[in-house]
Design a protein around this nucleic acid. Structure first.
Lengths: 199, 199, 199, 199
DNA sequence: CATGAATGAGTGTTCATTCAT
DNA sequence: GATGAATGAACACTCATTCAT
């Protein structure tokens, strides 16, 4: 059974690469299977449909990203350092797995119809990732370093700036070495979140 | 000739509504034309292709949004007030024309293949909108209210948080009345941008 | 009424040029009318349908060609000279009106469905041209210069070689100046038609 | 792999029949596939496009015809007998496979746009057939039975008369039994080609 | 007579999914 | 489990023809 999971991951990685580059609708099952040298029919032994493959792919990505972030939340460092680490880890991730982040932003966030079942809009698929951000924020508030605010607003600030930078990076307008942006971003996020006195 | 432009706008609005709701690839030309009671063939008297219609649609949206924002930049108010106005106008726009904002985020930002011509990636299509944000930032810097930072980072902070809120709004997790978020968002953006002394 | 016929001819010439170059099915009514600066709707005041325009066009061509050939049949020269003249006139015609000959061979002879009405296959459209060849042959037989043979066979020999040369000319494999082929073709046709003693 | 070629041939035969009867542009892919009981999509597993099917079809025809003619060129008989055999074999072919010959004349020779790639005009598709005629002519010249003439002219004489007879046959103006024309045609071709003394 | 926008049936092609081998 | 041929619904786009102006 371990073997089956391995093959599933191989397929997911192939799908991620193609979906993120060409988009979901411009990628065919044949493309995905040819890339890893298996037959079209075989693919269906692992995933019942193309849509399902897309769902599994997003879970794969968010879990991977969440794991990286979870280490930070468990560290015994200041909230500011956590944010800095957060940004850094995220940027390393972008550079190491651009196709995963691209997939997240370009396929998952933009193709509702693929991930929504009736009323529930597959938000749970990114839960692992969202949870880690929530922990970060709540810890900061608990330690009185962060001002208590509406969660969605704070969440949007953090994920928004990272998302926008990701997008600009995809558009090739940023410097190749993303690390040069880390300090400023950290600074902005921290200023936005922290309680007045902090300054 | 005025008449032709009017009809084009009718088609664009129909397309915007459907593209933003169902996605570009799940919307057929027949859907768009049926919605406004014209024939499929007629559509092609106004736009040479579906792709072209998508391009014209994004220009329509960004121009519309840019016009609203341009008023603010010309006002004689403090930078903080400008940001507050910016957020407010943006939220009003979301509530009034949700399909336009959705189109911007879900179709334009996520379907590169539709807007890219070879190397040039149709970034110019959103230029009007980006320009207004740039003016806001530069004015703040000139008036020593904002810290001088890398443009892309600042741009990402502002557009990122607005984009993320838009996304959450689309997911129906926010309060219906978005106005309750304005103050907090303005505060965060302002804190992130302003020079230390400001606090 | 003279004026109407003139306009009809203008349209026919436009159609001939496009049909012969691009084929009937790859030429649109819009192409034909744009080429001469009239509107699509106007075209339909002169010809009730595209098919009808094709029929009128072929009649225009065969009549034009037949007129040229008829002069030869009325001359008081030997049959051999008539054949030489025939070939010469035909080649001059090809060079002067390549689109007409092309139309004849590429559209008329090859698109039965356009010119056939139920059982009758629009053969009459080329009648003028065929008639002149028949006169040439019959005269030769009457004067005992040509052997009496089945008409269709003789007709095929003459029109066949001219047609094949036309085709090769269209394929650009022949010398630009077609006149260099006249003597040999005349010689071959004459030898094939004439009575044994002639040699 | 043998099996795939067999299926391709079945499709080609279906296409040949329909293209030759209705023309290329009046035959749909659905027509072709329905005729042999396969699905539209299946067709595309064998030929990437309708155009491509047309090209493969003409190659199929010319190869088939060339094979028949090649036997004659290898026989040890006089040139006159070869011509007679040539005409006979051709006429048998017409009667046995009228759709193939019709396809050759009505689709291949008349729809340049289908077979031309940029400058090269798919002449090679009929190469096998043309080659056999060239061999016949050159042999005759080598054996001093045929007068040395420009190749294109001689080629036009032979293929022209056969083509014209084919056309008339398609128009149903000839006797059903084409064999009655063989002798006269052979005689005419031979007289046209042979050196004067020969008579 | 002239115009050109509107029509809508028609076509080549794609592709997720199935299933016999 | 693996294969890849078969399926057929779906869709972008075309274009001859009409007709209100």
């Amino acid at each position: 059974m371990r073997k089956k999971q391995k093959k599933k991951n191989i397929i997911i990685l192939s799908a991620l690469g193609l979906f993120s580059k060409q988009g979901f609708y411009n990628t065919t099952i044949a493309d995905i299977s040819k890339k890893i040298g298996i037959s079209v029919g075989s693919m269906y032994n692992y995933f019942p449909s193309k849509k399902d493959l897309a769902k599994s792919s997003i879970q794969y990505v968010t879990k991977k990203l969440a794991v990286e972030l979870s280490y930070i939340n468990r560290k015994e460092i200041s909230e500011k350092e956590k944010i800095a680490d957060f940004v850094k880890v995220y940027f390393i991730f972008i550079q190491k797995h651009p196709e995963m982040i691209d997939y997240f932003f370009r396929v998952y966030l933009s193709n509702r119809e693929l991930f929504c079942d009736e009323e529930d809009c597959g938000f749970y698929l990114a839960k692992d990732f969202i949870d880690e951000i929530e922990i970060l924020i709540n810890n900061g508030i608990k330690h009185k370093e962060f001002k208590k605010r509406n969660f969605y607003v704070t969440f949007s600030l953090i994920s928004g700036i990272l998302g926008a930078m990701t997008f600009l990076n995809g558009e090739k307008v940023l410097e190749k070495n993303l690390n040069i942006y880390i300090e400023e971003i950290t600074d902005m996020i921290y200023k936005a979140l922290s309680v007045p006195i902090q300054n």
